[in-house]
């Protein structure tokens, strides 16, 4: 069992959990993910990027958003509760090198997995600039920790309730147009990563993105996470999750992410309505 030692609600729908998983905490590298499963015999396996790890305490940190019944169930768990299953670390670690100047762009809950990458980029000697964005002030997460890496980080909200009003590509474009940017890393909703890629393309700057696709086993067995990378079929779980943004077929990725959207929405509404009987919830 993998015990939850800390839980924080970061915003209405976003939760952070620190989980006991000593072996994963020791082995994981920036950019890797875990698959968690609650329920043992029943229920699905959920891939989540590792936001942080503490090898001394033997813990890893995950951040997730409540979108369907399964994540609703996760959010109901508290400190002291446990997951039956946590598998990892999965995926190929982020390629870290001293590029020179790296801009890290995080959107929504993508900011959480961006933290260890920004940290590793900094440690490798890069001049790291950070942009974080969300729909509104309430949804901005991890600002304090990100500031430890880039004290002058840029914040953007769709409604202007905090930081600049607009989308992350505006400050990204500004930085790129000023020149001197050697690499971009972008993690967030697919649509955001798509537009970050288009922006980077304009300035001919390489961009690394971290894809979040439908996945079951995380070991290369199901093929559910297949994506089109430069015309070749790749599996996010073993070949990724990070890819060269310029090679990603974004429209196909976004289309496939919607496979269970209708059911997710229906289940979520049921849960909110308090009739998710099989969860044993009120």
């Amino acid at each position: 069992m993998y015990r939850i030692v800390r839980k924080e609600q970061l915003s209405e729908e976003v939760f952070l959990m620190e989980i006991e998983a000593p072996m994963i905490a020791r082995e994981r590298k920036a950019g890797q993910f875990v698959i968690i499963q609650k329920g043992g015999d029943y229920n699905e396996r959920i891939p989540l990027t590792i936001a942080d790890a503490d090898p001394e305490r033997g813990t890893i940190t995950i951040v997730f958003q409540r979108v369907g019944a399964s994540t609703y169930l996760l959010a109901e768990l508290g400190e002291g509760d446990a997951f039956e299953n946590v598998l990892g670390p999965l995926g190929t670690p982020t390629h870290i090198e001293n590029y020179g100047r790296v801009v890290c762009v995080g959107g929504g809950i993508g900011v959480a997995p961006l933290f260890p990458i920004a940290q590793a980029m900094k440690a490798a000697g890069n001049d790291v600039r950070i942009i974080i964005g969300a729909r509104n002030r309430e949804l901005i997460i991890e600002e304090d920790r990100m500031r430890t890496i880039d004290p002058d980080l840029t914040i953007v909200t769709d409604d202007g309730s905090y930081g600049e009003k607009g989308v992350v590509t505006v400050p990204l474009e500004r930085m790129l147009s000023e020149g001197g940017v050697d690499h971009v890393v972008s993690i967030g909703p697919a649509i955001m990563m798509k537009f970050c890629t288009k922006t980077a393309e304009k300035y001919d700057v390489p961009i690394t993105v971290s894809l979040n696709s439908i996945m079951i086993d995380g070991t290369g067995m199901c093929g559910g996470c297949r994506v089109d990378i430069g015309g070749e079929m790749k599996f996010v779980c073993v070949d990724g999750p990070e890819f060269d943004g310029h090679l990603v077929n974004w429209d196909n990725l976004m289309m496939r992410q919607r496979t269970y959207k209708a059911q997710e929405k229906e289940d979520y509404d049921k849960c909110r309505g308090g009739i998710c009987g099989k969860l044993g919830l009120r």
């Binding site: 029943y42 229920n43 699905e44 067995m221 199901c222 559910g224 059911q263």
Partner: peptide, 24 residues
């Protein structure tokens, strides 16, 4: 779907048992 994905959803994650499983 690959057969692996289809079968794993049903067998391992018990999608067929809609009474008990949240697997879509």
């Amino acid at each position: 779907f690959s057969a692996n994905e289809y079968l794993t959803r049903s067998n391992l994650m018990k999608a067929y048992d809609t009474e008990h499983s949240l697997t879509p």
